[in-house]
Design a protein around this nucleic acid. Sequence first.
DNA 1: ATACTATACGGAGGAAGCCTCCGTTTGCAA
DNA 2: TTGCAAACGGAGGCTTCCTCCGTATAGTAT
Lengths: 190, 190
Amino acid sequence: MSETQVTKSPRRADAQRNHDIILGVARAAIAQRGANIVLEEIARDARVGIGTLYRHFPTRHDLLEAAFLDEALELRDRAKNLATSESAIAALVSWLRCQMDFGAHGRSMGAAVMNAKHTEGSDIQLACVSMREAGEVLLRRAQESGEVKPDIDLIDVLRLMGGIVMANENAPDPQRVDRMFEVVISGITS
Amino acid sequence: MSETQVTKSPRRADAQRNHDIILGVARAAIAQRGANIVLEEIARDARVGIGTLYRHFPTRHDLLEAAFLDEALELRDRAKNLATSESAIAALVSWLRCQMDFGAHGRSMGAAVMNAKHTEGSDIQLACVSMREAGEVLLRRAQESGEVKPDIDLIDVLRLMGGIVMANENAPDPQRVDRMFEVVISGITS
DNA sequence: ATACTATACGGAGGAAGCCTCCGTTTGCAA
DNA sequence: TTGCAAACGGAGGCTTCCTCCGTATAGTAT
């Protein structure tokens, strides 16, 4: 994973360290138990006061966003790699599948964070934008090759991925998820 | 709306009255502000102690379920009415659209409640089952007429409806919802 | 080295919700 | 009327969120 936050503004060393520790603990907790982390617990595991956690991440959402940043970047990279693959449709499908799996991995967080409004210019906002741009390339390529309907909107499809994840949060059944995924794929192909 | 709960077991009059009042208040609150109701507030508005509310509805979920019962019944009736309509596919699509709109109306509640596991034989469970059965008729009819793929599963489709609702909970854009709905419909048709 | 100060730390505590427990009240059957 | 099972109600415990402010310290200037 990319070591985020290269300290753009001069920051005291202890602050930077705590920031990174908190984020690391939060990421681990989210990966393991989902987005319903208890912030006091994160602070405790990070050997940091709760006040410190809140200074670095003023709201719960800020922390989730930061934790999700890496995934957004990875999804962008994935899209870029797939952009030159042979089959346009296969590339798109593969990428959408990643979107879904990442969402499932981060539990409800993925879709929730990615669909949310972000403050202009924030790290996560830029990451989401660039991820979408990379995805657009895949979609357009599949559309130009005539395999995907021309009037399909990427955001719609991404939300459908998120919707599948959310709809299966309780009692997730891999086979059902697969079938629902197939329905959507079938729905966007010509 | 049907006046639910015709007192199957002998219940003291005050208990019955409070039950109905609480449910009525909860329904109104949910319809207006979504499923994130504050239970103490419901109790206060119902002129009832919080303890009373919890005796009637031991968990938050129980209350949401009860509030949703009517909608499930209405959806079942809707399906039954549509079962004799002319176009099989139009009937199915119309019903699915209802599913989605009802879900949006009750906010996240609809899908959450309907997908959840219910105790065997509970009112809501029976209602959901009979609603699904009525829906199955519509689906099968559309499949037999060759308009919908034969391997489509109703639950999958219902979850997709719920997923669309959930994915658009923040910043709901009717046009986007329509497009996402169309994708799914297109995905289940032959 | 020392002193100074902007920056950061930490945790007590208030607020909001959820839910339980138990003493009090009341419908209603005899 | 009387008795009691059924129902009521709200104080209070628990959890989690977040704020506030006194204390500590990294980094700099002397």
